[in-house]
Simulated scan of single mutants.
Amino acid sequence: MENSVTSGFTDGNKINIYIDLNYPIECIQVYRGNQLVRTYSPSPVIRLQNRNVQLLTIVCIFSSGYKHSTVFSPNFRQPEGDTVGRIFKPGDILCASDNYGDFLPPGYMGHSAIVVDQDSIIEAVTSHPQVKKSPIDEFLTIHPIHVHYRSKESDSGNKAANFAEEFLQSYNDKLDNGLAVPPFTFSNQIPLEDLETGLYCSKLVWHSYYQGANIAFNNDFFLFAPEDLATTLQNDSRFKQIYKHPEFGFKIDL
């Protein structure tokens, strides 16, 4: 547990702290030196300014009263992988074979998302809201073991990204108006082509290209899992690989 409750990285004066909410955390305290800066409600991401470049201590207080402390130096780790100078374009696909926190070991489920601009992805997740726009840096930090693909036709990538943006807008409008939204589910009773009854991360990527760019990725059986997405892209001449972590790979085919 000591290595997975908190993680993060620094980017200049900005600090990104990631909290694994699979643990029963009641509140999070941030100390700069010995001084309490702020107490937060449980949140998966906390972003801070550290202009004075001081040591930070993140204290996660569990419901049992246990306190988990992590000290971050001013230069704690950057996102792993060859990210320096890497350019992200609309429609790029990020597919990870590792998992958030201790949910599963690498190679057994993974995660995927579609890039919509240089800084952002749209992804389907298990926490609320289950479709959201997130910083690319967050994905790279939580999922260092990933592969990055790009459509060779920029128009296809733009169309796929536009579909993801429009779907997110529609999803948020429904939430704001108290209407039903498709839940995150791996049910085998819901066809891959049906995005309104249920979704998951790689299914949203599939629909972004299917409905947005008229590209239907091949699926072998059951779920169109991140493993299926990565395998399809590896063998699809319409896409090129931008980056692949040396430990990337899946151990099962869902």
Rank of each mutant, 00 (worst) to 15 (best):
N3V: 10
S4D: 11
S7N: 13
S7R: 12
F9R: 04
G12M: 08
K14H: 15
I15A: 11
I19V: 15
N22Y: 12
N22R: 13
N22C: 03
C27W: 10
R32D: 07
L36Q: 09
S41A: 14
P42V: 08
V45K: 11
R47F: 09
L48C: 07
L48W: 10
N50R: 07
R51I: 15
R51N: 15
N52T: 15
Q54A: 11
I58E: 05
V59F: 00
Y66G: 00
S69T: 06
T70P: 01
V71E: 12
F72I: 06
S73G: 09
P74A: 06
R77G: 13
R77E: 15
Q78V: 14
G81K: 09
G81L: 12
V84N: 12
R86G: 04
I93L: 02
I93Y: 02
G101M: 05
Y108N: 08
G110D: 06
H111Q: 09
S112H: 02
S112I: 03
A113W: 05
I114S: 01
V116D: 05
I122Y: 03
T126S: 08
T126R: 07
H128P: 00
P129T: 06
S134V: 12
I136K: 01
I136T: 03
D137N: 11
F139P: 02
H143R: 06
V147C: 13
Y149M: 05
K152I: 10
E153F: 06
K159Q: 15
A161K: 02
F163M: 06
E166H: 13
D173E: 15
D173P: 00
D176P: 00
V181E: 03
P182L: 02
P182V: 04
T185S: 13
F186T: 05
N188T: 13
Q189Y: 09
L192E: 01
E196G: 01
Y200E: 01
V205Y: 05
V205L: 04
W206Q: 01
S208G: 07
Y209I: 02
Y210N: 10
G212H: 06
D220G: 00
F222C: 00
L223K: 05
F224P: 01
D228E: 15
L229V: 07
Q234N: 14
Q234S: 12
D236F: 09
F239V: 04
F239M: 02
K244F: 06
P246K: 08
E247S: 15
I252M: 09
